[in-house]
Amino acid sequence: MSEVKEFKGLSKEEIKKFEFLSDKYADDTFKCIRCSYCQAKCPSWEEFGWVSHSARGRIQTARGIVEGKLRPSEYMLRAVFTCNMCDYCLLKCPAGLPTTDIIRALKHDLAKQGYYVGVHKKLVERIQKYGNPYGEDPAKRADWMKEE
């Protein structure tokens, strides 16, 4: 169910935490002319049908972070992490933007600050707790050998 949401951006300090994005790709996010050439056949756009889940939307989301008008949210994570990095947008962009690199940087900076989607969260928790992504007890690691 949708509700009226507060529109709050990031402070300068918070933007700095998006270091990969702001150091390397800030200019590129502004260079996006919003032509949508990258959108029509973006697989996640075809699947979800919301601009946020398309190539254009993700580059704009990156700009929203860099210019301090958007802050991370569950919705943003879903929109960004449903990109499958297929490079279609990279081939289509008339402005020559490194679209997938920008999206990768955005994913990286989000994850580094602890924002990841549910499935990643589980993986990180397991790695932190067990040292592996499967959630298995490390003591049992060699068990399979004994059976033989």
Binding site: K5, F7, W50
Partner: peptide, 19 residues
């Protein structure tokens, strides 16, 4: 239907400009 209504700031932002 609920799925076709969005008030999320990200969605609002990416619809805030044209070219």
């Amino acid at each position: 239907g609920e799925d076709d209504v969005s008030t999320d700031p990200v969605e609002i932002y990416v619809h805030s400009r044209d070219s």
